[in-house]
């Protein structure tokens, strides 16, 4: 009985995570081409450059969901990866903005900028370039 309760609890936890991850979309300017999950992962883990990246604060649940969904890495792994890149000057880390509204504003203003927000926060000012369903 206890075991069944445990399994239910774990599966609920997994479902909760999945549901949250399913709500994340990567956005770009109206002129931005669509990107694949691999391209977004490479950009946000510093493996490729060429876009200005916007990040969300660590306290926002969407941040952990986004990195988990695109790269399978948790935030401490992401942090360790970036500490390798930052302290060698190989790449410039994503710029952190306080919330999804600020991310949208930055992305709308610059065709070279991408970010991620909740699906519910999408409006006409930005374009969904990758849906993390």
């Amino acid at each position: 009985m206890k075991r069944i309760a445990f399994i239910i609890m774990v599966s609920q936890l997994l479902l909760a995570t999945a549901a949250r991850a399913g709500d994340v979309v990567v956005i770009g300017n109206a002129a931005s081409p669509p990107l694949t999950k691999e391209q977004v992962a490479d950009l946000y883990l510093g493996k490729s450059q060429g876009m200005k990246l916007i990040d969300q604060p660590a306290a926002a649940p969407i941040k952990a969901a986004f990195y988990q969904e695109v790269s399978g890495h948790d935030l401490s792994q992401v942090k360790a990866t970036w500490s390798r890149l930052i302290f060698t000057g190989k790449a410039t880390p994503p710029k952190e903005l306080p919330d999804s509204a600020a991310v949208k504003k930055a992305v709308a203003a610059d065709p070279k900028t991408i970010g991620y927000i909740e699906r519910s926060a999408v409006d006409g000012s930005v374009k969904v370039i990758l849906d993390l369903k």
Partner: peptide, 8 residues
């Protein structure tokens, strides 16, 4: 390059 950065 990140030899001195223990956290990395």
């Amino acid at each position: 390059d990140s030899l001195d950065v223990g956290y990395a």
